[in-house]
Design a protein around this nucleic acid. Sequence first.
DNA 1: CGTGCCTTTGAGAAATATCAAAGCCTGTGG
DNA 2: CCACAGGCTTTGATATTTCTCAAAGGCACG
Lengths: 243, 243
Amino acid sequence: MPCNKLRAEFLKNLDESLLSPLPPFRRLSHGQIREILDLAHPLLVAQGHEVFCEGMSAERFYLLLDGHIRVERINAAGDRVVSLHIPPGQLFGIAAALGRNTYPATSVAATECMTLWWPLSLFDGFAARYDGFADEVHRTVGHRFEEMNSRVMELATQQVEQRVASALLRLTRQNGRQTDTGIEIAFPITRRIISEMTGSTLHTVSRLLSTWERGDILQSHRKHINVLDPDRLEALSRPDAPL
Amino acid sequence: MPCNKLRAEFLKNLDESLLSPLPPFRRLSHGQIREILDLAHPLLVAQGHEVFCEGMSAERFYLLLDGHIRVERINAAGDRVVSLHIPPGQLFGIAAALGRNTYPATSVAATECMTLWWPLSLFDGFAARYDGFADEVHRTVGHRFEEMNSRVMELATQQVEQRVASALLRLTRQNGRQTDTGIEIAFPITRRIISEMTGSTLHTVSRLLSTWERGDILQSHRKHINVLDPDRLEALSRPDAPL
DNA sequence: CGTGCCTTTGAGAAATATCAAAGCCTGTGG
DNA sequence: CCACAGGCTTTGATATTTCTCAAAGGCACG
């Protein structure tokens, strides 16, 4: 269990090298990282539990040390839409950078997650004081914006098959783990969740995955997906490739 | 350079009061606004012309003084998707705030547009020096992010009728002009553009508008749409309201 | 060792796109 | 001043994608 190891690290007081390779802190001295760590609060979140909810007052910002976070929203009719999966090493809950004082979406631990958080009041200070932090926050916002934009494009112009293929590819790229036969999505994921990522239904997703499994594009079993042939999946995801 | 002379002339004639009520400059003194104006370049964009294109190096940021900007992207298959309409008084082309060095989308003048622009190199200085500017940039990014998010939700969970109703409501709220019978969208807009905003087709949009016109929810003629009964449109836009 | 989620698959229904055609404005150039 | 071209709009008929409904088996966890 990686998290147990991390908990051990906490006991011996969080090594600076945990943060120093991460983009928001890359340009900082060990002394600065020590300062930042001393202000941080560790928080372990069990699988399936919420870190914060849409609409909550945004009193903290977070860094994901280990695990995977799923970002989701629910509309008035109760339909859930999954916006994003956040891999380890990234900041999240950075509503402050969007000029907001509430969180725009809900964060759920897709696997057990080790996080650090700081009170929002420190955010501006970090941005002003630590070289590269503000830049990285902007870049993160920019990436998520870009991702949002791509989703809109896909939803507006592509068919379900292409959208599901794109979603799987994105998951393998951003949240994948190399296996000896392919790239596996690094957290448990159901047909239902994929349908919530793609504006589809679990039935349609199930049919697609079955077809792709018969074609040796991927293997799937009970919340696990291992992509064997990303190139073929990529071909299926292209706007002009029906078959 | 005669051009510089003209520019100086133009900017001298621009009254500080043109900028002082706008959110990014609201907290500034007239002296500060004068400084900002003296650094600005005016640009008049004819209807239908592009201000900048997706992928271009982001060397400027803009303020829209008058007119309406349409933000759009084109996918690999050539399908156009309209992301946003920007009303007068807002900043745009603020890729810098997203940690990008290229524009993420294309901006087209939906009506003739009066804009000011500044070289990107001034952006960080503005943010650091002028109280409220950075905040307002963040808020603007936050609003656009929020809007993007709503679009994803709508596309993923709602039917075309509801999406078109939502799109029209948003246009009336953000880009509307009060008339004696209702609220008119303040720039020419075709069925095709509405379909590109909603991931639909011009045929379906045309059928919906015809139906709504028969029901006295709106009036429409040749690129003009006047919403007579926003409440009924709002009801049609709700996730659970099929009829 | 049952209960609840996860998954699969079939059949039919519904929403919406596509194809096709025609009328209508509007601005342009003769 | 008129005629025409090109984009805008409407509407019908048909096709297709994808959802909805239905049912059943499997796996995991308490």
